[in-house]
């Protein structure tokens, strides 16, 4: 197994884990983490895809950096919203989903 395949498989595993978290977790902070996991998995896979040919392709690296910045901005907004909602309603879950973890 080459290093690239290992990267790609790790990326796929992260995406799977993230989707599991997204569906299973009720706490909004956990969901934000799940989103970041999926994102990281995709970027890892993307990087692996760019490393295949003879010379490494620079485009995925540029896109990954952009993607990380975008994901950071989205996470910041999401966490801000979670905090605001927890302050306003006393819960960090969506209405109608209060029952679990």
């Amino acid at each position: 197994m080459s290093a690239l395949t290992a990267y790609a498989l790790t990326g796929a595993a992260l995406v799977g884990l993230g989707f599991f978290g997204l569906l299973a977790a009720r706490h909004l902070l956990r969901r934000v983490v799940a989103f970041n996991l999926i994102g990281s998995g995709l970027f890892l896979y993307f990087g692996a895809a760019g490393g295949r040919g003879a010379a490494p392709d620079p485009v995925p690296q540029a896109l990954i950096i952009t993607g990380i910045v975008v994901a950071l901005a989205a996470s910041a907004l999401a966490v801000g919203l979670v905090v605001a909602q927890a302050r306003a309603s006393g819960r960090a879950t969506l209405p109608g989903e209060e029952d679990a973890s």
């Binding site: 909004l28 994102g39 995709l42 896979y45 895809a49 760019g50 979670v82 309603s89 209405p95």
Partner: peptide, 29 residues
């Protein structure tokens, strides 16, 4: 409070959508 909850629900859908889209983009690349 209800606007924040609505925004949060929107965020969850929209982020999931973005990631699905991104996955498609990665595959296409």
């Amino acid at each position: 409070a209800e606007a924040l909850a609505a925004a949060m629900r929107y965020m969850v859908f929209a982020l999931a959508g973005s990631l699905l889209y991104l996955a498609g983009v990665v595959l296409a690349y």
